[in-house]
Amino acid sequence: MEQPVLKVESLTKIFTRKGRPDMKAVDHISFELMPGECLGLIGESGSGKTTAVNMITRLLDPTEGRILLDGDDITGISGRELRKVYAKMQMVFQTPAESFDPRRTLGDGIGESLRNNGWGRARTKMEVAELLERCGLSADFASRYPHQVSGGQCQRAAIARALAIKPKLLICDEATSALDVTIQKEIIALLNDLRWKLGGNLSILFICHDIALVQQFCDRVLVMYRGKIVEQGRPDDVIRNPQNDYTKRLIESIL
């Protein structure tokens, strides 16, 4: 039996704020992601998708639950240990343009993880150029600043950054939502290409609003509603035979 790349056990986040009722943004979600698999995560705006992946990447501390990466519990680790984990797990942020430091070049951002893992300047530069080209940008984008590129180009650079360290797990938080349909298609083609090349070495957690896109791209899908996973299964099955009220409405709304 193969070990899952990512295993999440009853992960929960409760936001507490003074003078307001507690807010259960993520409510006891559990799932597994197998090597080479692409898992879709859909749900309406505010259903807790970003909160969930921020906990998985340990940018946010969970209220409850466990996160296992490659069988290792990463829930409580910090500092150097956590930094080591980031060589296995990367994320493409929901807002690509803001995920690059406005005062540093895209090349700096893309090469940062390599530099942090002991790569030399020259070698990093070559690798960054190659990454950019693999993501459909020319090598001279490395010397541009975030405000000098378009949204789609920035998104590609963000994907290049996430891939730089060759992670086992790639999390895409609405990597395509901010883009128009044609660019969206190109990005999906790029991700598909990567999956095909890397095979079992790359697993993807793909967050998306668009159920049609999930159907094309993912092996399995989770549906989140108000912080809970209300449904899961193969995309075709879920679409053809939705069990949950929310899922039914979601599918009706786009058909």
Partner: peptide
Amino acid sequence: TPYLKAARLSGSGTWKIIFKHILPN
């Protein structure tokens, strides 16, 4: 900011983040 989160995800330590990202900004 997302870029600071991205820097953490790139494996940058506290000092690096402070001197390379926070201070210049």
